[in-house]
Amino acid sequence: MKPIFVRGVSNQFRLTLAIILSVALLAANHRLDPIRQSLSSVLSPLQYLANVPGVMLDWSAEAFATRNMLELQNKELLRQQLVMSERLQRFEHVRQENERLRALLGSPVHMDSRKVVAEVMEVASDPFRQFVVLNHGSQTGVYVGQPVVDAQGVVGQVIEVSEFTSRVLMVSDTSHGIPVRVTRNDVRAIANGTGDIDQIELRHVAKSTDIIAGDLLVTSGLGNRFPEGYPVARVISVSRDDGQSYAVINAQPLAALDRIRYVLLIWPDETTPFTLPADLVELIEKNVAASQATGEQTTEQQATGQQATSTTGDNASLNQPAVNPAGANAQNPTVVDPTGANTQTSPAVNPAGANTQSPPAVNPVATNDHNQSSSEPITQSSEVNQ
């Protein structure tokens, strides 16, 4: 007779199998990324389908909105447009001036070439992970590490991309860190998430660092991940305890992370070169031409000096005294005359003991010829006397 309840697999075997599978999945985690992306691309239509009720609700709310609500909304939008237009005009002037100064200093100009508005399709339900899913993927050009901002500040960065969707890790997540600087004094720090959607913190900041409540934190541009100058958070509290090595600094993100609906994907500009204004180009060309002319004049002066030095050296080599082995006349050398001959110009070696009045000679043969021609008038005088 068979028992009613058949004994199944033992609990020890189940535990062992679970441990083995867990270790295998941990070891092959990085190799499963293509599979995850493929599954995400396959499940993207389901995400769009799940988002249809929210889209229909928004459309219904807009369709049944009263006239008074639309008028008030229109007036508010018009007011915001005027305010933003005035700020944009001032910012445009500041931007042009900043570009001119950066061009004069030779500093690279940071610009954004492309921006795309994306809609939030899904919010993470995991309490330990804070991310959202956007309706743009690799077809739009979204890449891992791309910065994401909204109308108030930085939201986070893309950590996973599929064909039609992408996942954005928000700045409040515990695993997220972003380099920031204080606009008041350019103090740099790292802002890390705390797990609280309304709070981030600056870790490992010295107690003597000049940071106070109310300081605005913006992206510093370090790490080449977030462009420089985007607002991140505002400092809400600073605590300096003598018993702690570092100050405890808390800040509140400026982006509305708990109610974001539309965000902005940013592509940094890496191909479009910056063009200098015409007046700056003309000024730089004049300076280059003047420097080239000055360099040519300096080169000519150096060449003239070298030529003069070479000529002087040649003359000096010609005027150097020469030793006459044949007993020829010598003018410059100063040596001892063993024969005690009379010398009128300078003492020289003369075996024959003859008087020397002729200039210095380099060639012994030429010198002898010169001496012969010089001695002819003396011979003729002797003949006349006879």
Rank of each mutant, 00 (worst) to 15 (best):
N29E: 11
A354S: 15
V168S: 00
A308V: 15
A103T: 07
P359V: 10
V9E: 15
Q130R: 08
T367L: 05
N319V: 03
V384Q: 10
I4A: 13
I211E: 00
R188K: 14
A366K: 15
L283W: 03
Y262H: 04
F226S: 02
T299S: 14
V120S: 09
L217S: 05
V168L: 04
N98R: 03
A316D: 13
G340P: 03
N368C: 04
G141E: 01
S22G: 13
E228P: 00
R184K: 15
A50E: 09
E383C: 08
R31W: 12
L318R: 13
S172P: 05
V55N: 11
S175V: 06
T219L: 05
T339N: 15
L57D: 09
T275K: 03
F13P: 00
F91V: 01
N371H: 11
S172H: 08
R225G: 03
V384P: 00
P325E: 09
A316R: 14
S245C: 05
F226L: 06
A354D: 15
G340E: 06
E97Y: 02
V336R: 12
L57F: 07
R90H: 07
G141T: 01
W59K: 14
V52Q: 11
T309Y: 02
F128G: 03
Q157M: 05
P273Y: 07
P333D: 08
R234L: 08
L265G: 01
N135C: 09
R14Q: 13
L46Q: 02
Y262M: 00
V6A: 13
P108W: 03
V83N: 04
V218A: 07
S373K: 14
P127Q: 04
M69S: 12
D241N: 13
I178C: 08
I236A: 13
H204A: 14
L169M: 11
I197N: 03
G221H: 02
T165M: 03
R184Y: 08
A63H: 12
E270M: 05
E160F: 11
A366V: 14
V154Y: 01
V9K: 13
S175Q: 13
F128K: 10
I190W: 04
T140K: 13
E228K: 12
R114G: 02
A191E: 01
D279C: 05
E62L: 15
F131A: 03
P333R: 07
A206Q: 14
K2H: 13
R67M: 09
L101E: 14
N250P: 02
E71P: 00
S166H: 01
T165L: 06
N371D: 09
L202Y: 04
P34C: 09
A316M: 11
G137Q: 03
S85G: 08
A28K: 06
H176W: 05
P108Q: 05
R261Q: 10
A27K: 09
H176C: 09
Q331K: 15
G195H: 09
Q320K: 09
E201I: 02
N332Q: 06
V9W: 11
P321C: 10
N368I: 05
G193C: 01
A308L: 14
V55Q: 12
V148L: 06
S239P: 00
V23N: 08
Q80H: 09
D33V: 12
L318K: 14
P34D: 12
P359R: 14
P338Q: 10
T294D: 12
T298F: 12
R129W: 00
D314M: 10
D279I: 03
L104G: 02
V142Q: 02
R203I: 04
Q307G: 03
I19W: 13
G156I: 04
L105S: 12
P377L: 09
G195K: 10
R129Y: 01
